[in-house]
Design a protein around this nucleic acid. Structure first.
Lengths: 346, 346
DNA sequence: ATGAAAGCGCTAACAA
DNA sequence: TTGTTAGCGCTTTCAT
């Protein structure tokens, strides 16, 4: 990334332009430009003179003029929902961090658009756009796609408009988690869902149901509690659940945050985990990998998702192809201390 | 003849330009430019036609042309450390969100630069820069200041180079927290610090010491444990602390995250909070405002800090003044359920 | 190997 | 009020 000096009005001092360099070196601006762009056509002697003039004048190319004249952009846009439940989640933080990290390697700049409701993202700044999930901004996605800006969606399987995406097999994750509990012998399994506006929460719920159905287990309706990924909601849900007559012996939560809150609840109520009740989360959030009790959870490869997504975007940008690539990454069960057989009395 | 096809341009995505808008609206490009820049000189009727044409064509101004022609940018840069302990913290998340929210109001775009170690932020894209703290990137700050780009530092009192900042009186916060514990009657007070590379952690520690000194309390060295704002470290610290013979009756932690972890630790060890030991945090993190036990903590006005910082930046940009403004915001003690008198046996 | 010159899309005099 | 036009600094033909 070349650095140049700002062309602000506030900036009084006059900075040398390519013309000054040309004059000083006794060549034309075209030759200077060639030197700047590493053209092999410049005679070694002239090249040296130009380089000397550049150093002498402290010349820095004006990046805006470069871009205007056809140079490439070096920035990627990341559009992420600003809604509290999502923005503060481990998922969102990890996505931002990974994108930032990877772009650092690619030597590109990151243009972050935190999305509330207005569709005012200016795609002129960027060569390509990464959408972190699509929630209440289908219009925005459609517009960017329609503008012909290369883009890729992360964490959502999008059918319309046609667009590349990299997502995670959340249904499989939900299925595996539930299946594991069933195999341990649990028959009374509750589920605290994520925000059902999100596709991943819906899919995790679907996986939960599928596993139960396959095992021919029917559950009372209140065993499915709607959460929103947040701990507050998880606490409400688990509290309600354990005030009913019929209590589950296992709880599958759609996020580790919620699972952890549930574990805390049990700790407070002196309900033993996993002896009396098993808990499974989702995320493999590193925050819960230590301490006296590690969560049984579902690992979802967020970093890989970001890297794959950016790779697709890169190819799209470089080849100028409009090829649509979609990937669904598998999840993996991680067994921790929060699950075991159901109490024998059950 | 295929060989002579213009290479790049023919494949380049073609955006509508100001010229297309002008034609479509039946006015000159100057009039379109005036509309774009909110000039009051345009007749209402023409303004509407232009706006309509813009919408119809999906026109977005080319920022590079704008900038080259001496126009205004509508974006600011946010530079934030990518180091895990800091990036994932409530502090960093809140800063990002608040900046995003406020810029949405100002109708500006956000360039996010997640900082690891290399100094490659390109200030050309932005009108101004917000630094979220300065940790291992003094060089970067110095460069941006020297380039004459308006900037403001958040959450750190910077002496060199001369630059505007808005920070928080962390020493006062640490002092208040400790003083409160002392007033409750505690004499054996431990402190788990934040990452001592950060100024705020240093200041909170200084405040802690000051309060003790003022009350003529001397403590064993191991009562100050170095943490790094993370829960992992907090657990290690509190575990070590409570394996010693001499135990504190109160613990002041440099963040709510750490304080919460400490509370959990006590919960697990069946040590009653606040009956047997009091805990004070720092942040007033909304995550810990519910549940069976609310934390006593120090509120730091992060949102206000961001707003004030951006306001200073705005003024700097608009007035083109180089005035340096510094602000230190006060903290406030929030009393929750995690503190009370020390046990009488003490 | 080099230079002249035509844009790139926009802003802001200056004219009308 | 509006339009015309001269740059902004650079890249890239095209001619030499």
């Amino acid at each position: 990334m070349l650095n140049s000096l700002p062309n602000n009005k506030s900036f009084k001092k006059k900075y040398p332009t390519i013309k000054d360099v040309a004059e000083s070196a006794g060549v034309s601006i075209a030759t200077v430009s060639r030197v700047l762009n590493n053209s092999p056509l410049v005679k070694e002697k002239n090249k040296l003179r130009v380089l000397q003039a550049i150093r002498k004048l402290g010349y820095k190319p004006n990046i805006f003029a470069q871009k205007l004249a056809g140079g490439k952009l070096e920035a990627i846009g990341l559009i992420i929902p600003g809604y509290e439940g999502i923005f503060y989640s481990y998922y969102a933080q990890e996505i931002m961090r990974e994108v930032g990290l990877y772009l650092e390697i690619l030597k590109k700049d990151l243009f972050l658009h935190i999305f509330w409701d207005k569709d005012n993202f200016n795609s002129n700044y960027v060569e390509g756009v990464v959408f972190a999930d699509i929630i209440r901004n289908e219009t925005q996605l459609r517009r960017v796609v329609q503008e012909g800006v290369p883009c890729v969606v992360i964490n959502k399987k999008v059918k319309e408009p046609p667009v590349s995406f990299v997502a995670i097999d959340n249904e499989q994750g939900g299925f595996e988690a539930t299946k594991y509990l069933i195999e341990l012998g649990h028959k009374k399994i509750a589920h605290i869902t994520g925000d059902l506006n999100t596709q991943c929460a819906q899919e995790r719920l679907a996986g939960f149901r599928k596993a139960l159905k396959k095992a021919n287990i029917t559950l009372p309706g209140h065993f499915i509690q709607e959460g929103n990924f947040s701990r507050v909601q998880a606490r409400k849900a688990i509290d309600f659940l354990f005030q009913q007559k019929l209590r589950p012996t296992a709880v599958f939560c759609a996020s580790d945050d919620m699972a952890y809150e549930v574990v805390l609840y049990f700790l407070e109520k002196k309900i033993k985990v996993p002896e009396e009740v098993s808990v499974v989360g989702f995320d493999n959030n590193p925050q819960y990998l230590y301490g006296p009790l590690t969560l049984t959870t579902i690992e979802q490869p967020l970093g890989e998702m970001v890297k794959k997504g950016l790779k697709i975007l890169e190819e799209n940008i470089n080849s100028k192809s409009k090829l649509i690539i979609t990937k669904v990454l598998p999840t993996r069960l991680i067994v921790g201390d929060s699950t075991s057989y159901p109490p024998s009395s059950s």
